[in-house]
Design a protein around this nucleic acid. Structure first.
Lengths: 128, 128
DNA sequence: TGCGATTAAATCGTGTGCGATTAAATCGTG
DNA sequence: CACGATTTAATCGCACACGATTTAATCGCA
């Protein structure tokens, strides 16, 4: 993924995981670290340093949620929204660079999702 | 991959890439770092530290090839062969844990190989 | 109400991946 | 033969992944 996205992301100064975080915030702003982790299948031990880096780059802000100070909410800055706008064409360009059709990509994604769900089952609600 | 192989490899004290290296040496012993890199799609910047770790664990030995001292040949030790023997059933157990049929696994592997070949084309022989 | 259990992030340690550079050996050509 | 080009590993730096632990806030129940 990195080698396909790399040339596209280099001009934005982003890594692929950083791009995924910004993308997710573009879909829904002001998410908690935990929400981002659920969407991206990452944990705070990976996300916290990554978020600090894109915060240092001025793309997001991080604040404790006043209503529940255990949680940290991550929000896009103006600069972050600009970067997302510049990245708008990346998914299509990436799809091009794979040399696969849209249907093939969808099929591959579905197969990998199935595999991941088998290998890392969502933790079940506890039965009392 | 790591989370599927992890439980199986933990008892051997191996990571997944380390297992791949030993596996490849099981197929053909005494390979150079470059040969391992070609098979595993890794470079010396990744392989050298990994090889030093499994050398420190006593599983392989590393020696400069006397015929061409640029190359380093990696060979299994007796202990390394023992570990490979203990790992013989891992591929089947992994296939089980994916929840996929053999045909589905083959199809997924083929799709990923195609994708990788598009994204990281094998460097071509130079045309003079 | 108070105190143990739970939850959310952060932190720590280890092991890859990979771009870029370096050092040494070998090759190729004049 | 000599010397620059090439090849092979090693090294360096940075950014993930992820298991394990820690810290702080909140929850739940006696």
């Amino acid at each position: 993924m990195q080698s396909a996205y790399g040339p596209l992301l280099d001009r934005l100064g982003l890594t692929y995981p950083q791009y995924l975080v910004l993308s997710s915030l573009g879909d829904q702003d002001d998410q908690t670290v935990g929400q981002l982790g659920t969407v991206l299948h990452l944990d705070s031990n990976t996300l916290t340093p990554l978020l600090k880096r894109i915060e240092a780059a001025g793309l997001v802000s991080r604040h404790r949620d006043p209503a529940d100070e255990r949680q940290v909410r991550v929000a896009l800055t103006e600069s972050g929204r600009n970067v997302i706008a510049q990245a708008a064409d990346i998914p299509d360009q990436f799809a091009q660079s794979t040399g696969l059709s849209g249907a093939e990509i969808a099929q591959l994604r579905a197969a990998l999702t199935t595999l991941r769900n088998h290998l890392r089952p969502r933790p079940e609600r506890r039965n009392p």
